[in-house]
Amino acid sequence: MSIIATTNLLEVDDLTVHYGKFQALKGVSVTLAPGETLGLVGESGSGKSTLGRAVLGLAEVSSGSIRYLGQEISRLDRAGRRALSREIQVVFQDPYTSLNAMLSVGDILVEPLLVQGVNGAKARERVQELLDQVRLPSDAATRLPREFSGGQRQRIAIARALAINPQLIVCDEPVSALDLSTQARVIDLFIEIQERTGVAYLFISHDLAVVRAISHRVAVMSGGKIVEQGPADQVTSAPKDDYTRRLLMAAPVPDPIAQAERRRARLAQAGKVPA
């Protein structure tokens, strides 16, 4: 492997991904520093999830590069991928289908440890540590996923991602299936874990408010391209790009007066007369 001095954890450069004839990513470039959260926001079909899957090695790359600590990882073989699994982990959107319903929570959490050759007693100890980290009761290990609520299941998925202490976690809509109050708590947990462990997040969401709350930087995607990228506060409150502005204006704010204002502005911008 090449030795390149770099401060970036992840560098995606001019990445293109095809699904059959459909071009899901059209030359996307992003970077991620250690301990940083890059929020990827966009609507369905924008390519945000495809970017996450490409980084995880779950989507085949057509052209461009993905470098992790300077090392090209977009065309790794199985063994290379397996080695990389110590470094890059994932939390998926749906806490119901991302956990195998037939395995106990303990078995689910032990899985990544077994792959890395962590043995019985040590693995069990680590499972307890992980449950503690995500604030689940220690008897959770012996129970089945279905005994837990959506928010608790997502904590299990986070614990699984943390198990082998990765430096990067790809989070694909991890809070969009959760209730409002649960959502806020899970985001707090994500932030707290980041501050303690220095893990970096590639955080994918369709919700600008969620991305704003957790990200240091935000990239807005549309039609397989990044239309705007910058500091979270700027992109989510004073966007420069037209599409980002439309996205921001379309999201209703939970305040009737402010929302009436936003609606008027949106309709005016679209050239419609407000009702």
């Binding site: 080695a83 998926f92 991302s98 792959v115």
Partner: peptide, 10 residues
């Protein structure tokens, strides 16, 4: 998704 997660786990 849990099969994807297992793949990512290596």
């Amino acid at each position: 998704l849990y099969v994807d997660a297992a793949r990512v786990s290596g």
